[in-house]
Amino acid sequence: MLESIIDTIDSLGYVGIALLMALENLIPPIPSELIMPLAGFTVTQGKMNFILVAIAGTIGSVLGATPWYFLGKYWGLNRTKQIADRYGKWLTLSGEDVVKAKVWFDRRGYTATAIGRLIPGIRTYISLPAGISKMPLVFFLIYSAIGTIFWVSFLTGAGYIFGANYEQVGMYLKPISTIVLIGIFSATIYWVIKRKVTS
C-alpha cells in the first residue's frame, strides 16, 4: 500500500493527494495517518508547498466524506443502519457504529461535524449522522472543511517534523486514537444510562 501511495503522490502531485484523501474516506483502510505525513515529508524535500498540500488534502477529504452525507440524508437512520449491518463489513462499518455516531452528533449539533473530523475512527462516519439529521449541505461542507484542515495540517506538519521517519506518525497516533475512542464510548454509555435513570 505504501508504494502505491508514494507512486500516486509522485506522479499526480497535489491532485494525487486529494485523490488519496478522497479514497481514504470512501475506503477507510487507506490511512490518512500515512498519506499526509508522507506528503509532509515531500515538503521537506522541496518538492511541494506545505499550504498547497494541506489544501489538497482537505479538498479530497471533504469530497470523500460527501457521499456518506448523502447516504445518511436520503436513507435515514433505520435504513442506513440496516445497510451497514448487511454490507458494512467491507468498509469496517456496522449499524451500531451508525447509531453511536448519530447519538454523538445529536449531543453536539453542527460542531460535531467539525470535531468529528479530528477524531480517528469517527472522522469518516460523522458524515452519516449529519445527513440523517438533514444538516444543510453548505453547513456540512463548511464544518467538515474546518475540522479537516486542522487534522490534515497536523498530519502534514508531523510528517514534516519526522522527515524520512514519517511512518512513525501513525504508530504514535494509534494508542492516542484508542484512548480517545474508549473515552467517547464511555461518555456515550454514561449519557444513555443517566437519561434512563432521570426519565
Rank of each mutant, 00 (worst) to 15 (best):
M21W: 12
S94G: 00
L63F: 14
Y110I: 00
L91N: 10
K89S: 09
A84Y: 10
T8I: 08
I126R: 13
P31V: 01
K196N: 12
V169P: 01
G88F: 00
T178F: 09
V99W: 11
P129W: 06
M1A: 07
S199N: 15
G183D: 05
T113L: 02
Y110K: 00
I55W: 08
G57W: 14
V192Y: 00
R195A: 09
I59L: 15
Y87M: 02
G40Q: 07
L173Q: 08
S153V: 09
T111P: 06
I146T: 03
A130F: 12
D106K: 01
G159A: 08
D7I: 05
S153F: 07
G60P: 15
F154D: 02
K73T: 10
M48P: 05
T44K: 08
K194C: 02
L181N: 09
L93N: 02
I30T: 14
I146S: 01
S144V: 07
N25Q: 04
M1Q: 04
I27E: 00
S11D: 02
S11T: 14
L52T: 09
T124P: 05
F105R: 11
F150K: 06
L63Y: 06
R117A: 09
L20P: 10
G109A: 02
I83G: 11
K102D: 12
K102T: 12
K134Q: 09
D106E: 08
F140D: 05
T8F: 06
M36H: 12
S32K: 15
T198P: 03
G131F: 08
G147W: 05
E33C: 06
A101E: 01
Y166I: 05
V98C: 02
M135I: 07
L77H: 14
P175S: 00
W191V: 03
G88H: 06
T92E: 08
L34T: 15
Y87P: 12
T42V: 05
A114N: 03
D106T: 06
Y166D: 06
I193R: 10
I115D: 05
A130R: 01
I51C: 07
I189D: 04
F70Y: 13
I55A: 13
L34V: 12
L77T: 12
W75P: 02
I35R: 02
L26R: 12
Y87I: 13
L128R: 10
I132A: 06
I176S: 09
I5S: 09
L137N: 08
T188L: 01
S199A: 15
I5D: 04
D10C: 12
D7E: 12
G109L: 04
K81R: 14
T178Y: 10
I27K: 13
A158G: 09
T44D: 09
M48F: 13
E96G: 08
V53W: 07
L23A: 15
T124L: 03
I17E: 08
